[in-house]
């Protein structure tokens, strides 16, 4: 293959992000301010955390349609515990454990009961949501605890908390994926689970673990969002799985053969966050935002798939 120019090697997502930035720079005054750019990163951070878990799940040829609802309910649970007088640390811990446990059940349904992941996670998601509604009567539960609010509003070593958490989680996920057997399991579960099995790995357990980890990450995100809105509301994040899945796919992870990785998911997250933020700054109403984001995500995926065919097609032989 003749050497292609370096420009050609840049993934198309970056071009799309750049294009969006130019457009917004022209049409949405206020987009290119330090405050707003920082805002984008702060908004992107929780999405990155869920999307990392989603990427791992998708790499196993699975999917988790329960993350949005689980996130909301974890927020509710924390808010509820704090309202009934639990100290904040314990509430967060219990909230996280509860969320992780829910998704652990997801994992069991998929790995052991062999349910198709989208059915299992959809079913469990609505069960969890129902639980959240019962707990709160469908109302939003306010959180007044300022230590809890710190999880979103505070800064640590100069970084806003969400960014700090995203960086820590990303580092943790990276080590797990690329420096421990966990990552090998993730890729192999999607690529050739039989190969894992004959190598002596308990594939049911490995699969359950991936879902559980994704649930844990969704839990962290749910708590950040609850801290941001200073409330627990079951439906607060009901559509987040769409963004998480979109970011994963835009990042180049595919549903087949365990192809992809968590690195490029950052780009997918950035694309979605830039897109949404710009629309907000430009004052586009929520209704149109939905349709528009769906469109851009689709286009980005199509371009990416075509691009990959064009650059990798020859190596298939």
């Amino acid at each position: 293959m003749p050497a292609k120019s370096a420009l050609w090697k840049i993934p198309p997502v970056i071009w799309i992000i750049a294009l969006l930035c130019v457009l917004y720079g022209l049409f949405a005054p206020g987009f290119f301010t330090f405050r707003n750019l920082q805002n984008i990163i702060v908004q992107a951070s929780p999405l990155l955390i869920v999307a990392l878990g989603m990427t791992m799940v998708i790499l196993t040829e699975g999917i988790d349609l329960s993350v949005g609802l689980t996130m909301g309910v974890i927020g509710v649970f924390c808010a509820f515990l704090m309202k009934t007088g639990y100290p904040m640390g314990l509430a967060v811990l219990l909230g996280l454990s509860a969320g992780t446990f829910f998704v652990f059940l997801n994992g069991l349904l998929v790995s052991t009961a062999k349910l198709p992941p989208f059915i299992a996670t959809l079913g469990l998601g609505s069960m969890v949501f129902g639980f959240g509604l019962v707990l709160t009567g469908g109302e939003s539960v306010p959180i007044s605890n300022s230590a809890f609010r710190f999880l979103h509003d505070g800064t640590i070593i100069g970084l806003p908390m969400p960014i700090f958490l995203a960086v820590v989680v990303f580092g943790f996920a990276w080590i797990l994926m690329y420096h421990t057997p966990f990552g090998r399991n993730v890729i192999a579960l999607g690529g050739n689970p039989e190969a894992l099995r004959v190598a002596g790995v308990n594939i049911e357990r490995a699969q359950t673990l991936v879902y559980t980890l994704a649930g844990f990450l969704a839990g962290i995100t749910g708590i950040i969002i609850a801290a941001r809105t200073a409330s627990g509301y079951a439906a607060a994040t009901y559509d987040w799985e769409f963004d998480a899945i979109g970011a994963t796919i835009i990042g180049g992870t595919s549903f087949e053969e365990g192809q992809g990785g968590i690195g490029k998911t950052i780009l997918g997250v950035l694309l979605i966050s830039v897109l949404r933020n710009g629309l907000n700054v430009a004052g586009v109403s929520n209704k149109y935002q939905f349709a528009f984001i769906g469109l851009v995500v689709l286009v980005a995926i199509i371009i990416d798939v075509k691009f990959r065919q064009a650059t990798e097609g020859g190596a298939e032989a």
């Binding site: 057997p181 890729i187 690529g191 039989e194 190969a195 894992l196």
Partner: peptide, 22 residues
């Protein structure tokens, strides 16, 4: 060595050779 393909396509050569024995 099994008759079937027992490699993981997107793991690299070394990861496949040392699968579960890294």
């Amino acid at each position: 060595v099994h008759q079937e393909f027992m490699l993981v396509p997107w793991l690299n050569v070394a990861q496949n050779i040392f699968i579960n024995r890294e």
